[in-house]
Each structure stands twice: as C-alpha cells, then as structure tokens.
Nucleic acid binder design. Structure first.
Lengths: 343, 343
DNA sequence: TATTAGCACTCACCATTTCCGAGTGCTAAT
DNA sequence: ATTAGCACTCGGAAATGGTGAGTGCTAATA
C-alpha cells in the first residue's frame, strides 16, 4: 500500500475522525463498520486501519483499544476531506445580532466578539486587537489632571483610543496644553503611530523648534506617551474547555491555564496569521508551543479595506468540530471587518 | 463547658488552624500536642477538641481523621486570635516597586495591581475599577471618525477615560464638533457623570437650547454616549488556585472557574465592601454565593481624599494565610490610594 | 478535679488480585 | 479481495485485605 490513499481508506479515516470528534473515545473497527454507509465487515476495516496506522494517520493508545486520529489525520481532514459547510442559520443570527457599534468602544466590541465566538462555538473565543502602532493617528489631546499630571489621549483612525498619564516637571496651563496639541496635531496628521515616533525625533533635532521652549517640551511630552503597550488579547470561554473529557486530568488543566494566563505566547502565535489572509488552522503540535498539544486554533484576519487589522478565532481541542467552527470564524471575521469599516 | 472559650482552648484552636493552613490536612491530637509549646498530652487535646467540635469550631471529615476548622473558627481567628503582623520587607518592596503611573493609563495601573497582588499573595488578586459614573467629569471631546461615526471621549477627574463610538444621522463638520464640545464642557464643568446625565436632560427641555439645532444635537449626542458600562474587574492569578489541594477535584474546579467567568456576581459581592472603609473579610459561605464555598476574600477600599474609589483584594481558600495577606492588602490599598491622589 | 495512659475500635487509603470485555492480529475459508 | 473465526492482550472496574492514623472511653494518676 503506497502513501496515496484509496477512496475507501479516506472514507474510513473520515468516519473515524468524525466519530472521535463527538465521542472522544478511541474508535473500534466494529463501530466504523456498523454505523457508516460503507458495507464492510469489521475485519476489512481492521486491515485498512492497520495501514492507516502505519502511515501515521492513526494511533492506538494500547493494544485493545480502538484507534485515535493523529494530528496528521486532522490536517488531512481539514485540508481535503472536509466539505465546506455554510454557517447554520441560528449561528448566523447570533453572530449578526451581536454586531453593533453605537455606545461602545473598540475594545468592548472586540471583547464581546470574543465572548460571542466562545458561546457560539462552545470552545474558547480569542480576539487580538489591532496593533495600535500600525494605525494612523487621527487625533491627539492633552488634558490636565491634578498636580503635575497630564493625560495624553491618542485616537487612531479606526477609533481605538489609548491614553497615558505623564508626570511632568513643568506646570503647564490649560492654554499651553491646547497650543501644544494644536501644534502636534498638525505636525503628525496622517502618519501612523510608528511614523509619528520618528517624526517627533526628527523635529526635536530641528533648529526651528529647538529654540521654542514650549514646542520642544510638547515634543518630549508626547514622546513619553508613545511607547506602545503590548497588543490586547481577549480570551473568553475558558470554562468551556473544562468540560472536555480530554482535559479532565488536573495536571493537563493546570498547564493550559498557566499558558493562557501568559498572553504573550498566544499573541506571537496568532501574529503569524496576520500575514496570511483568510482562514488559518493550527493543529496540535504544529505550532511549536508544547502547551498547545491537544489543542487546535482556527483563526481568520479582520480588516478594513486592504488593511489587515488583527486576528480572531477559536481555540478548542484537536478533535474540534471543524466543519462547524470554520464557517463561524470565517463569517465572524467578515462581520467584524464590515463593522469596523470607516469608509 | 459554656460557650466562652478558655484561654487554653483558644490556643489549641489557633494551633489547629495554623497547622491546617499550611498542611491542608485534617489535624490530629498528636500533632497539636507535639509541636506547639503547650505541654499537653494527646488525650487532653482530644477532650478539648471534642468540646470545640460541639461548639461548631471544628469538624471531622470522618471518624478516624483529624479535625478541620470550620468557617466559624476562621472568623474567630481573624477577629481575635490573629495578631496583626506588619508587611514583610520584601513584600513591601515588591508592592512599592510596582507603583508608578507615568506612561500608563488608569486601567493598566489597576490591572497590574491585581497581578501584583496575586504574585505577592500566591492567591488571586482582584481589583474593581472606580465606578466611572460616580466620578467628576473633567473633559469631554468629540472626534470625527470616518463616515457618520463620531467618537465621544470622556475624561474623569481621576484620569479615567471612557470612549464610545456613536453613529449619527447628521454629518457634522470638525468645526461643529469643536463648538459642540466647547459648549458642553462649559455646561457640565465640575459635575459627576451621574449629575451630567440629568443635567443634559434638563437642558434638552430648556427653551433656549431647543431652538438651536446644533446645540440640541450636541446634547442628544452626548447623552447617547453616557450609559455607563459595568465596572471593570481585574482578576488575576487564577492558575494559582489550581495548585491548591482542596481544588484538585475537577468538578469543584469547574464550578469556580464558571463563577469567575461571570464577573457580575463578583462585583456585587465586592460592592458591599465599598461602604465599609478599611479591611473587610468574607469567609467561605458568609457571602451568600454558593460558589464561594471554600473561598475567602480579603478586601480593602482605595480612595483619594475622602472619596472612596473602588475595592481591591485577594481571593484564596478559606485556609488562606490571613496573617500574611491581610497586611498585604492593607498596604496595597494605601499605596494605590496615594498613587491616584490628584491633589 | 484535671490530666493522662491504655486500649479497643473505626475507617479512609493503598496495594493486590481477579475478572470482564472490547478490540486486535492472524489464519483459513469464501 | 473480503470475511468469519479464534486466540490473545490489556486497561479498567470491582472485590479483597492489610495498615495506620486517629478517635472515644475508661481507669489510673497527680
């Protein structure tokens, strides 16, 4: 038996995967031969299964258990076996009805999206907020707080807001602050936050401004508030995966929760998807993170125009209901994109 | 034996509690008689223990196990047995070094505080952000986003920022938006957000503004953006409690995580502490929440001047290291208060 | 009278054993 | 090429028995 699979073995593999997805139990030859249309005796199925195991698509936990699909099997499954399904009507409803902007801020919208993804998929929903630094600065404002504290507010094109408190040595008047922000708004109009950063540096060197004390202070002030915080991640529905039998073991559980508490790794994993547009799937150990063993991630990017903003998706067990979840993620990404469109 | 405890039985109870706090194992009479200064035979200790059990301070999991302190025992312990300790030097260090404001926003500061509480205490840290509505509005601003979308930015006295996207039917020019915000800033100067709300309504009725289309639109616009979101909660260190032996059971685990995913209940529990200044302790079932069985909460309020802002604290098992954690929470609350002071 | 030693008893916990059946791989028959 | 038949494997549940920490009671002791 060569490495290319016959039609039949594909069908059997698919049957095993689909059975395992719902039962989470090793699948035996009887089961396959019985429930699925293909009329084959258990013995025949066993032969095929032995081949599939040799090719690395199946594994047996021990001699007298059934077979379990490997990551390789899931990969094949999502790449070629899986028929593309549409989003079910109720799911579509639930996604749609959550889409509204008025009265919320961007963060809230993304947070809710993550919650929605988790509740529709019954796994974990994850949304990575746009990198602020990559966005175009729309508006900048200084607000005087008590004492020597100044609040710097940055608004990006897409409506994201960042604010930072800065403590100054000088005591600026409100009028000075207004003048400063007018000056700066003009200086940086239309630049991305990242560009603003270098623009400020340039300007600091500039002979003209060097002799205007107020302006150069303004430059310094805004510079202090530019360091970007790490991108926000919204991860919801962690309790959903507590229900899964494969994580009933407390040790495994701990490991996963520890991993998710440190959002950084998660971000760098999902950042890899930023480049590739559309649906992206990591199965189990494919991502190099050992903590992801047994977990799969389905992501898609959301964007305005041709500008990719961020990544959203669902994290579940490798035996996730791909056929159902993939369309959900896809549809959600599209809806969020449309929602954030600021023509 | 009447309900008032002799000095000796108090000592024994204390010994049992403290032993149980570190071991998480039922404490037997041998153990008590051996390690603690009071020279008593196991038999004597047993007699006392039997009394304490009858009085409801101890419970036996089963005949041949030691005794376990009840919630009532912990209550007595924190109220009268426990000597007030100071914060250890290293802990104080760790708390202090985290206290800085520059380059962060309020949310970030509180989030970090929660993380810090969890890492210092080794339980969960929790911080409830100030109710925005109770704070005085400092500044209000409209920023035009693409299309018919307007971003409303509200800045409170204490430096908290809320922003909301509002979709309008009219297409305002930037100049109009500036005029509108000037008008409104003047109108609501010095009022709390809650007061602003009613002030806006009043003004909408007002004859003067009724005939100025722009102004009345401004009023409606800002009104739309006032509905407060539920107060933010920062809960960190959930994985810490995964380590605790009493939650090794998966069922218990699930329950707790489910409870914490729904932050609402947590908030309403902690809101009860807003009134009472200073340290506040809930032990196990004292809070009416069934999910809190086995958990205790130590909280304190943080404030600027005599204005209570919010609540922060630590959530741990009932057998928490009270002697260590209480001072930590107390000290942290003071530091955060000082940090947010905006003279 | 308060404390303590002694002792019989209880019961969770651990390790061991036993048993069962689902599932396999092989071989021979179709 | 497929399938029936069969011996074999091995995890997991249930039954068994021993161990020891801990108890409550009683009688001796200071």
């Amino acid at each position: 038996m060569r490495d290319n699979l016959t039609e039949r073995s594909k069908q059997i593999l698919e049957a095993i995967i689909e059975d395992y997805i719902v039962t989470a139990e090793p699948v035996g030859s009887r089961t396959v031969s019985r429930q699925h249309g293909l009329n084959l005796s258990p013995a025949t199925v066993r032969n095929v299964m032995a081949d599939l195991e040799e090719m690395g698509f199946l594994a047996s936990p021990h001699t007298s258990a059934g077979r379990v699909p490997t990551d390789k099997a899931y990969r094949l499954y999502v790449d070629s076996l899986l028929g593309v399904r549409k989003v079910a009507r109720e799911e579509r409803e639930e996604i749609r009805k959550h889409c509204s902007l008025t009265g919320k801020d961007i963060g809230e919208v993304l947070h809710e999206t993550s919650r929605m993804l988790s509740s529709v998929s019954h796994y974990m929903g994850i949304v990575v907020a746009p990198r602020f630094a990559a966005d175009v600065l729309r508006h900048l404002e200084f607000v005087k707080l008590g004492g020597r504290r100044i609040l710097v507010i940055l608004v990006s094109q897409s409506g994201a807001v960042q604010n930072k408190i800065v403590e100054t040595t000088d005591d600026f008047s409100s009028e000075e602050l207004v003048r400063m922000s007018n000056y700066l708004n003009e200086l940086v109009a239309g630049l991305t936050i990242a560009q603003v950063r270098s623009r400020l540096l340039e300007e600091l060197e500039n002979a003209k401004t060097r002799y205007d004390a107020l302006l150069s202070k303004a430059l310094r002030l805004s510079q202090q508030s530019l360091p970007d915080k790490d991108s926000e991640v919204f991860l919801e529905g962690q309790s959903n995966i507590l229900e899964l039998p494969e994580f009933a073991d407390v040790g495994r559980m701990k490991e996963i929760f520890r991993a998710f508490e440190e959002k950084g790794q998660l971000v760098s994993l999902l950042d890899q998807c930023l480049g590739a547009q559309g649906i992206n799937i990591f199965i189990g150990a494919e991502s190099r993170l050992s903590q992801m063993a047994g977990l799969s991630v389905i992501t898609s990017t959301y964007m305005t125009g041709r500008n990719t903003l961020g990544v959203l998706g669902v994290i579940g067990p490798t035996r996730m209901g791909y056929a159902k979840v993939i369309p959900i993620v896809d549809y959600t990404a599209k809806m969020v994109s449309r929602l954030l469109e600021m023509e």
